[in-house]
Write a protein that binds this DNA or RNA. Structure first.
Lengths: 138, 138, 138, 138
DNA sequence: TTTT
DNA sequence: TTTT
């Protein structure tokens, strides 16, 4: 009924964009979210898989890079499929509907790689009515 | 750095409480969160695993039942282990730190099974410093 | 950049729907959100003003009533105006983009007043591009 | 019952720390949260007042400055008082329980002003049991 | 001005 | 009274 997630973390790798058979853009990346440090423990993180569709997929693919500090808003989705050994595998992902770049570039400039011409590309309802979890090409 | 989840859904089964070898209470249950309905699709839900520790584990075990409408606040945790075939398995769960019972009972009374004597037992910081994902007994 | 609120509480009164001069529906109501009880204190609540626009305004006006347990998702908005004494007054509201009715009716039935025919009327992007805080008719 | 806010924005001024008569530290600052840009409108922001107590108050006062990009997690609180003209004034604030510094310093270094010796000072339950909204010294 |  |  209500399913909302907000994460801040860093990309573990460059994002990967693919297309569904129907030609819809999907971008996948993983966010490393550091857990609050507890004494006597080394630093730990949760590695959370993010999926963005359509226009949001494209802007993520164009502007995000490994290591970038990023805020993601979305919802948890759990899908399952049968693997090649006939076993059911469950995959949990966050379907993003809002992504914010929080990093400055190494030279200190602010998000210089973001095209000025884009009319806030970060708007996407994240609820594509004709796309189901099973359309994911990975 | 920041990792927050808020869910409202219904329990798919009665919760299960266990204890770690060190004697810490842990309760596990699954929340069915209906996805927004899209036309031409049958109703779908995400089934999200919830974990509660300690006092929150006990109140969840005592007061939640299959079918109950429940709000859960917490953070996403991803842990992994090697299964008996030597393969790494990834498990995603929501570690609850706040759980609210939203249901009235069938007879219309409000949460009659909740003991009056408890001074809001639903307060728990959910961040037990001496417990790690690997302590989970399931 | 990111501004997200999730509340669960009860309506202090019946909601009020009005129209802007341009004919857009707006509904206003107040949610009483109980604070976590602390010992030695009587029970306290925060009374938070909610605003819903357009279709969401209409479904809120039709289905919510005083006392109903309700979940609201939205964003904080702060607007200001000059009062009749020439003083600037600041008003903080939550602009809802998702509202869930959590209550059963008194007779135990589930949300019987909600028309079956409506294709989830609770979808609204809450971001009406041609409406500004100053359009509020109250 | 549930009351959660997550904001990302920039400080409009340096934070101000004070003490209650009982000697408890409180820090106040304002976050400018840009609204999603809509065409035909100049850029707008919501200016949201944040309050942090105790240890979190001190780390905010020490490490935040005007202009810093900051994530705040907390809950909405509405308090009211009678002003000097005998009128009831309502004040809405976000009581922070988690604050993250998202900015690098001007020289490109990462949060160099944060003392290494502090064992994550950003943990605070934000629910001081002996403090009420009326204790605020501003 | 406040809800159960 | 407002930030980049």
């Amino acid at each position: 009924m209500l399913n909302r997630v907000i994460l801040i973390g860093r990309l573990t790798k460059d994002p990967e964009m693919r297309y569904t058979p129907a030609g819809v853009a999907v971008t996948q990346f993983t966010l490393a979210c550091d857990r609050p440090v507890s004494q006597g423990k080394e630093k730990e993180a949760d590695f959370i898989n993010i999926v963005a569709w359509r226009q949001l997929a494209e802007t993520c693919a164009n502007h995000l890079k490994k290591g970038r500090l990023t805020a993601v808003e979305g919802r948890i989705q759990v899908r399952n499929y049968e693997n090649n050994e006939g076993k059911r595998v469950y995959v949990t992902e966050v379907i993003a509907d809002n992504v914010k770049f929080l990093d400055t570039n190494k030279d200190g400039s602010q998000r210089a790689d973001r095209p000025d011409t884009a009319r806030d590309p970060f708007q996407d309802d994240g609820k594509p009515i004709d796309i189901s979890p099973d359309d994911l090409p990975f």
